[in-house]
């Protein structure tokens, strides 16, 4: 095992019950560390509010609805109603223009209907496919320079991030972190955004970004590692 280059900081109650977390290091997500990390996620002060996960029965029922809509596009309405709010929130999270977010939302569902005949059930929620279309549409807007990439942060989420990285309380951390996030490479920003500001699970992040759950975890903790170094460097410049 590599020496930990930094250690995550967890809430006090977790530290008492899970002393093994001190072995967690940034570069390794093995089978033993994975469980620990999962524990950390479960005990995290963040409240996971994603409605993404569905039971096998729900997915099967939804697949039947999709098949029906593949034959008769008018039957897509049930899926449109189910996911409209979530897709709009996803888009608006990355934009500053509400009206544009509504327009893009409509465009996402139009694209989904147009591509629906090619959709095949692969054992993951239909939502991940819609989020991928939404992501594609949003980035198309940025490429065409019709809107500015915006990062929308709840202060409480920022606080949660700081607490996850360091026990050290230092008020300027929030501003430093805010600025650092705004300058992250786009791929890194997406993961931070999905995990901390949209409260998505690693599984969901993996399915939207088409990477494995473990890869999502590794990437996130590497980003946090970088951000932590930035925070500590700002606090102690020498």
């Amino acid at each position: 095992m590599q020496c930990p280059s930094w250690q995550l900081s967890f809430p006090e109650d977790l530290k008492k019950s899970e002393p093994a977390v001190s072995f967690l290091c940034s570069g390794i997500i093995g089978s033993d560390t994975e469980d620990i990390m999962q524990s950390a996620i479960i005990h995290s002060p963040m409240e996971l509010v994603s409605k993404y996960h569905a039971s096998a029965q729900d997915m099967q029922t939804e697949w039947e609805e999709i098949q029906a809509a593949q034959i008769n596009p008018a039957l897509f309405e049930v899926l449109y109603d189910r996911y409209y709010e979530r897709i709009f929130s996803f888009i608006y999270q990355r934009l500053d223009d509400k009206e544009l977010a509504f327009d893009i939302s409509s465009q996402v569902f139009l694209k989904a209907m147009q591509n629906l005949p090619a959709y095949r059930f692969k054992g993951v929620p239909f939502a991940s496919w819609l989020f991928r279309i939404a992501k594609s549409e949003v980035y198309q807007v940025f490429r065409e320079q019709k809107a500015e990439r915006t990062v929308n942060i709840e202060k409480v989420s920022l606080k949660g991030m700081v607490e996850e990285m360091t026990e050290d309380f230092y008020e300027p951390y929030y501003d430093i972190l805010k600025d650092s996030i705004a300058e992250l490479p786009e791929d890194d920003l997406q993961i931070v955004e999905m995990r901390f500001f949209e409260k998505r699970s690693f599984k969901e992040i993996g399915e939207i970004l088409e990477i494995t759950e473990n890869h999502a975890k590794v990437k996130l903790y590497r980003i946090l590692d970088k951000l932590k170094k930035i925070l500590l460097k700002k606090k102690n410049p020498i």
Binding site: F76, E77, Y80, D81, Y84, E85, F88, S89, Y92, D96, K98, F102, S105, S106, F109, E148, R149, T150, V151, N152, I153, E154, K155, L158, K178, D179, I181, A182, E183, L189
Partner: peptide, 22 residues
């Protein structure tokens, strides 16, 4: 560098639902 909004006001669920137009 991106624009960052802190605690931006969110549209209500009613407002979002009201904009649905299948």
């Amino acid at each position: 560098k991106r624009k960052v909004n802190i605690n931006r006001e969110k549209p209500s669920a009613e407002e979002i639902r009201g904009r649905r137009d299948f």
